Amino acid sequence: MATRSEETVRSLAHWQFLAGGLSGFIEIICFHPLDVVKTRMQIQGAHPFGGEVVYTCPLDAIVKIYRYEGLSSLWKGIVPPICVETPKRGGKFLMYESLKPYFQFGAPQPTPLTHAMSGSMAAILESFLVNPFEVVKITQQAHRGKRLKTLSVVKYIIKHDGYGIKGLYRGITALVARNAVFHFGFFGFYNALKDIVPSPEDKTYNILRKVIIAGLASSLACVMSVTLDMAKCRIQGPQPVKGEVKYQWTISTIKSTFKEEGFRSLFKGLGAMILRVGPGGAMLLVTYEYLFEFLKSQNI
């Protein structure tokens, strides 16, 4: 029979998974349009094809996508994230909590480095589950015509490119690197800043404090990882010339982008990424913390 402590651990794992999944679902629904904008701006080259709409900034992209493709186009590619992100976020937070004891390095309590390392490791592990869904999502988001059906995109990719690094797992190295760097910064900055900024007694102000800190941590993590995210989008999205693979590996993609489009191109989509991940990350992390505490206290 399981001991009481083992049952408690299992119960906590259930709440961690459920709280992570619910907070992830809410965040996806609210902020997916900015993910579409980020993808469009990152795959946009220095010399757009004739007749192709050019996006100058996130607001310009939102207006033009709405004008030429309709309001629903801002939610292109949302099916893959909903299918995978909700359970994935639950699994990520569960792994994050489970890995923390292994990165305390003798400290009596988890340190910011503990949170950074465990968050980064959990994100690396989730990359192998998420990559096929990312490829399908970006293919849908990049398409400027009518909305592509998710299953049709999956079948097309498998038929023409297969399951490996040329198909559903293309861009896996860029995704692993992006996730590792982003989550190291996100969880590390959040917990470091939370320890520095004093906690007010008023609950409302305390929630606001956490939201601001989480938003700032998300934004800093975006700056750290945006170049890797740009490379990932270019590798996973449609190639500039049909039938020719220009973007295949992370380092070569970054080098060619820098050479052809200049230093600023390495930060393409940063504004949209901060607008999407800054408040989105704040909502995700703070919602997770409060949902977890609520579920645990209710003993559902």
Rank of each mutant, 00 (worst) to 15 (best):
K137Y: 09
A116I: 04
Y68Q: 10
N131S: 08
P200H: 10
S225E: 12
P58G: 03
L148E: 10
P81K: 11
P238V: 12
I212R: 02
Q239M: 11
N179L: 00
E244T: 12
V9T: 12
A272T: 03
Y66A: 10
R178A: 10
I62F: 07
K210H: 07
P80A: 08
L151K: 13
L74A: 11
A282M: 05
P110A: 15
M230V: 15
M117L: 15
H47K: 11
L216V: 14
E201V: 10
G167R: 02
G77S: 02
K155Y: 02
Q248N: 15
L94E: 00
I212A: 12
I251S: 08
G45I: 08
C222E: 06
E201H: 15
A231L: 12
E7F: 03
F25R: 05
A2I: 14
K159V: 04
M95H: 06
E69M: 10
A217P: 02
R10A: 14
L148M: 11
N179V: 03
V211H: 04
E289H: 13
V136T: 11
P80F: 11
E260F: 03
I62K: 02
T227E: 02
Q44L: 08
D60G: 00
V245K: 14
L129H: 10
S127G: 05
K76Y: 11
A123V: 06
G162F: 07
G171L: 07
I212K: 03
L99R: 07
Y96K: 06
F258Y: 13
V245C: 11
F105P: 05
A107H: 10
K38T: 12
V286C: 02
